[in-house]
Amino acid sequence: MADQLTEEQIAEFKEAFSLFDKDGDGTITTKELGTVMRSLGQNPTEAELQDMINEVDADGNGTIDFPEFLTMMARKMKDTDSEEEIREAFRVFDKDGNGYISAAELRHVMTNLGEKLTDEEVDEMIREADIDGDGQVNYEEFVQMMTAK
Rank of each mutant, 00 (worst) to 15 (best):
residue 87 R to I: 02
residue 33 L to C: 00
residue 149 K to L: 08
residue 52 M to V: 11
residue 30 T to C: 01
residue 14 K to F: 00
residue 87 R to K: 08
residue 43 N to S: 14
residue 136 Q to N: 08
residue 108 H to C: 03
residue 128 E to H: 10
residue 66 F to K: 06
residue 139 Y to N: 13
residue 147 T to P: 12
residue 67 P to Y: 00
residue 130 D to F: 01
residue 116 K to M: 08
residue 89 A to S: 14
residue 73 M to S: 01
residue 31 K to A: 07
residue 100 Y to W: 02
residue 119 D to T: 15
residue 74 A to E: 02
residue 81 D to C: 10
residue 62 G to P: 01
residue 35 T to G: 03
residue 70 L to C: 03
residue 39 S to G: 06
residue 26 G to R: 15
residue 6 T to L: 09
residue 40 L to I: 15
residue 144 Q to D: 05
residue 119 D to K: 09
residue 116 K to E: 11
residue 108 H to V: 13
residue 53 I to Q: 05
residue 33 L to E: 00
residue 134 D to Q: 08
residue 34 G to W: 02
residue 84 E to I: 15
residue 142 F to P: 06
residue 42 Q to E: 05
residue 4 Q to D: 06
residue 32 E to N: 09
residue 145 M to F: 12
residue 31 K to Y: 10
residue 65 D to A: 11
residue 8 E to V: 12
residue 30 T to V: 03
residue 4 Q to S: 09
residue 61 N to V: 13
residue 105 E to I: 08
residue 55 E to F: 01
residue 69 F to L: 11
residue 37 M to T: 11
residue 52 M to T: 13
residue 18 S to F: 12
residue 56 V to M: 11
residue 34 G to L: 11
residue 19 L to Y: 06
residue 9 Q to D: 06
residue 86 I to T: 13
residue 114 G to W: 06
residue 136 Q to K: 00
residue 51 D to P: 03
residue 25 D to I: 05
residue 141 E to S: 06
residue 120 E to F: 14
residue 121 E to T: 01
residue 41 G to N: 02
residue 144 Q to K: 07
residue 25 D to C: 14
residue 16 A to Q: 07
residue 4 Q to P: 14
residue 71 T to N: 09
residue 65 D to R: 01
residue 134 D to P: 09
residue 8 E to P: 04
residue 99 G to T: 04
residue 1 M to V: 10
residue 53 I to W: 05
residue 108 H to A: 12
residue 82 S to F: 02
residue 7 E to D: 14
residue 128 E to F: 09
residue 2 A to G: 13
residue 84 E to K: 09
residue 82 S to D: 00
residue 45 T to H: 06
residue 98 N to A: 10
residue 130 D to A: 03
residue 69 F to Y: 08
residue 76 K to G: 01
residue 27 T to E: 05
residue 97 G to R: 14
residue 15 E to D: 13
residue 59 D to S: 08
residue 130 D to Q: 04
residue 148 A to D: 06
residue 96 D to T: 14
residue 83 E to D: 07
residue 10 I to R: 03
residue 145 M to A: 13
residue 69 F to Q: 04
residue 55 E to V: 13
residue 36 V to Q: 03
residue 82 S to M: 07
residue 84 E to D: 13
residue 68 E to D: 10
residue 74 A to I: 01
residue 116 K to T: 14
residue 9 Q to A: 00
residue 8 E to R: 00
residue 66 F to P: 01
residue 101 I to V: 13
residue 145 M to I: 07
residue 52 M to H: 07
residue 70 L to F: 06
residue 50 Q to H: 11
residue 149 K to M: 07
residue 82 S to V: 09
residue 104 A to Y: 04
residue 138 N to V: 13
residue 4 Q to H: 06
residue 12 E to A: 15
residue 32 E to L: 06
residue 147 T to D: 10
residue 76 K to P: 15
residue 26 G to H: 03
residue 35 T to K: 01
residue 129 A to Q: 05
residue 121 E to A: 03
residue 19 L to I: 05
residue 56 V to Y: 01
residue 64 I to T: 13
residue 131 I to W: 14
residue 43 N to A: 06
residue 125 M to F: 05
residue 146 M to K: 05
residue 135 G to N: 05
residue 138 N to K: 12
residue 73 M to G: 15
residue 17 F to H: 08
residue 92 V to R: 07
residue 24 G to F: 10
residue 140 E to H: 06
residue 71 T to K: 13
residue 103 A to Y: 00
residue 104 A to I: 01
residue 133 G to R: 11
residue 104 A to Q: 04
residue 21 D to T: 00
residue 18 S to A: 12
residue 15 E to V: 09
residue 75 R to V: 00
residue 49 L to R: 14
residue 35 T to N: 05
residue 62 G to N: 02
residue 112 N to T: 12
residue 60 G to Y: 11
residue 78 K to Y: 10
residue 38 R to S: 08
residue 134 D to A: 05
residue 127 R to A: 01
residue 88 E to N: 15
residue 147 T to W: 07
residue 20 F to P: 03
residue 94 D to A: 06
residue 68 E to C: 10
residue 92 V to F: 14
residue 42 Q to M: 02
residue 64 I to G: 08
residue 14 K to R: 10
residue 6 T to H: 05
residue 114 G to Q: 02
residue 77 M to R: 13
residue 28 I to C: 02
residue 130 D to W: 00
residue 97 G to A: 14
residue 19 L to C: 05
residue 59 D to Y: 08
residue 97 G to P: 00
residue 13 F to T: 00
residue 148 A to Y: 05
residue 19 L to G: 04
residue 97 G to V: 08
residue 86 I to Q: 04
residue 105 E to A: 14
residue 149 K to N: 12
residue 61 N to F: 03
residue 115 E to I: 01
residue 97 G to M: 14
residue 130 D to H: 07
residue 85 E to T: 11
residue 17 F to C: 00
residue 93 F to V: 11
residue 84 E to L: 09
residue 41 G to A: 13
residue 46 E to C: 01
residue 64 I to Q: 06
residue 83 E to H: 13
residue 104 A to T: 10
residue 49 L to T: 02
residue 25 D to E: 08
residue 12 E to M: 02
residue 36 V to M: 10
residue 119 D to S: 14
residue 59 D to Q: 09
residue 110 M to H: 05
residue 113 L to V: 05
residue 85 E to I: 14
residue 91 R to T: 06
residue 127 R to E: 01
residue 40 L to Q: 14
residue 5 L to M: 11
residue 70 L to G: 10
residue 83 E to C: 01
residue 27 T to D: 06
residue 128 E to C: 03
residue 32 E to I: 08
residue 88 E to F: 04
residue 49 L to G: 13
residue 45 T to C: 02
residue 36 V to T: 15
residue 88 E to T: 05
residue 64 I to P: 15
residue 52 M to Y: 07
residue 62 G to H: 14
residue 89 A to Y: 04
residue 81 D to G: 13
residue 59 D to A: 13
residue 27 T to P: 10
residue 9 Q to T: 12
residue 81 D to Q: 03
residue 104 A to G: 12
residue 67 P to T: 12
residue 13 F to R: 01
residue 70 L to V: 12
residue 92 V to S: 04
residue 21 D to S: 10
residue 109 V to Y: 03
residue 87 R to P: 09
residue 110 M to Q: 03
residue 118 T to N: 08
residue 107 R to L: 13
residue 60 G to L: 05
residue 95 K to R: 14
residue 8 E to C: 08
residue 104 A to C: 04
residue 72 M to Q: 15
residue 112 N to G: 15
residue 107 R to S: 03
residue 5 L to F: 00
residue 4 Q to V: 06
residue 44 P to I: 05
residue 102 S to Y: 00
residue 132 D to R: 03
